[in-house]
Amino acid sequence: MNELVTHLEEKARQLRVAIVKTLHASQSGHTGGSLSAIDMVTALYFHKMRHNPTDPAWEGRDRFVLCKGHAAPAQYVALAEAGYFPREDLMMLRRLGSHLQGHPDSKGTPGVEVCTGSLGQGLSMAVGMALGLRLDQRDNRVYALLGDGELQEGQVWEAAMAAAHYKVDNLCAMVDANGLQIDGEVTKVMNVNPIADKFRAFGWQTLEIDGHDMAAILAALDQAETLKGGPTVIVARTVKGKGVSFFENKAAYHGVTPSDEELPRALECLGCFEE
């Protein structure tokens, strides 16, 4: 277990480096929310989920829905690292003609299941996937990663109600609760707390963890799988911009990318001195 945790922690560090480099190249995109989500994304793609990068449509795969689609760089670097497409593609993020759209687009990017980015819509799609897989008597699981600001969207709670009503226990939602949104602190813009209590009231089983503690992430994902009879949400407290000290906990870095001057400092924070 310790070896696995160390391995995934190192993988997450490498993916943080990739996120920073990718967003420096694109000079457009969402840095803070990608860095806060990457530990969970790493745990899913490099340990928990069954998937096959050489056959993205493999029927036996678990599904991942990045509801907070603006964190697309986090998913893209994981997909590239896993081998869904060449790493070089990352340098084309958000450019005309690239399959790596500003927000996840299932039409072009191998490994992306649905189109997300308009907040609040992803969990509904995840519920649909979970219902469909259950109808086919498959044991595949569906993972949906939401932001905490995203929970302000009413559709999320429509989906939460439906998931509990239909008892989809093959669905695991994860909330990347970094506490910040574009206009500032989530608690000040429109308070969504207490998150876990709300989900419990809607009939969900809830787990609360530190979203940067890899051992805790793995344990929660394993536990979620054992919880039957309904959906589970993992509320993960995270730090926006995690890993790059001068990005951390700054709402201003929601939709800002590293400048030429910031790049070497950001990489240094991540233990990367190659530039």
Binding site: S106, G120, V127, G128, M129, G132, E158, A162
Partner: peptide, 20 residues
């Protein structure tokens, strides 16, 4: 899906994504 049309349409999209 109850009186919740937005979620109904999204759920349908998810069902389509798994081949329904």
């Amino acid at each position: 899906m109850g009186i919740a049309e937005a979620n109904m349409v999204g759920t349908a999209a998810g069902l389509a994504a798994v081949g329904k």
